[in-house]
């Protein structure tokens, strides 16, 4: 089974995220990491490969430095990668990103495309469904379990109450959640080996992308203004002397929260 796994480089959660007020784009000059959710997708892809043989290809759209995130996926055990990078891609919204990823995915064959459930900076959780639409294959998102038998996929989609089990033939687009597995750490050997693995760098023209569909000009949403919310202030703080619970109850009653 040949599996593509879409990975994004995101800003480290420890870093303070800022929007550039001129372009309303995210300032990406700070520390970046592989999107934590995508580690589950990479791990799942590797496990499927290990159980059924095959190949795993990482696909990433991002600035040149996104190569670091791609190398991490390679170090974990992914076989090769495609990095789509082009200054013209900056400012793409979820739809534009999905268009570019779908076009990159059309350049090679695969049976399955895996995604993380969302990125910790884009936070839309919408790219997987949009890619599935672009490619015209079924989508199953938010998965806590993926089983492959021949070309049949059996998956568990998490719900508030438990899960729904679905069956679907490959090819398909799947997004996986935290908890589906425990992502491996890249080994020293993996990290060394990753440097030599094939990385295919593509730009907008090599993918014959339609400029009206990506980047700032192709974006179908526009930020009008941005602000920092009023920082929350520290409220009342009371040392418990045995009446703490009553204080809380009084407070809740005063706020009509009880």
């Amino acid at each position: 089974m040949k599996i593509a796994v879409c990975v994004k480089q995101v800003i480290d959660t420890e870093a303070v995220k800022k929007l550039d007020p001129a372009s309303w784009r995210l300032d990406r000059s700070v520390a970046c990491v592989l999107n934590p959710y995508d580690e589950y997708a990479v791990e799942e892809a590797l496990r499927i490969k290990e159980a059924h043989e095959g190949e795993v290809v990482a696909v990433c759209m991002g600035p040149e430095k996104a190569e670091e995130a791609v190398r991490k996926a390679l170090a974990m055990g992914v076989d090769s990668a495609v990095l789509v990078t082009d200054p013209a891609l900056a400012g793409s919204d979820a739809q534009g990103t999905a268009y570019v990823l779908a076009e990159a995915l059309r350049t090679f064959e695969w049976d399955l495309v895996l995604f993380g459930v969302r990125s910790t900076d884009g936070e839309t959780g919408c790219v997987p469904a949009a890619v599935a639409e672009q490619l015209g294959v079924p989508l199953l998102s938010t998965l806590a379990k993926v089983e492959v038998q021949g070309s049949t996929l059996t998956v568990h989609r998490e719900t508030e109450q438990g899960y729904v089990a679905y069956e679907c033939p490959a090819p398909a687009v799947l997004s996986v959640i935290k908890g589906i597995n425990e992502p491996r750490y890249p080994s020293m050997k993996g990290i060394m080996g990753a440097k030599k693995k094939p990385l295919d760098v593509k730009d907008a023209s090599s993918l014959n992308l339609d400029v009206s569909r990506f980047g700032q000009s192709g974006a179908k949403t526009r930020v009008l203004s941005g602000r920092s919310p009023e920082p929350r202030k520290a409220g009342v703080k009371i040392e418990d002397d045995g009446t703490g619970a009553q204080h809380i109850a009084d407070f809740l009653a005063s706020q009509k929260l009880m």
């Binding site: 303070v16 995220k17 800022k18 929007l19 309303w24 949403t221 526009r222 009008l224 602000r227 919310p229």
Partner: peptide, 9 residues
């Protein structure tokens, strides 16, 4: 940490 106003085009 940031609140934006947006519209679709």
């Amino acid at each position: 940490s940031v609140i934006v106003e947006k519209e679709a085009t």
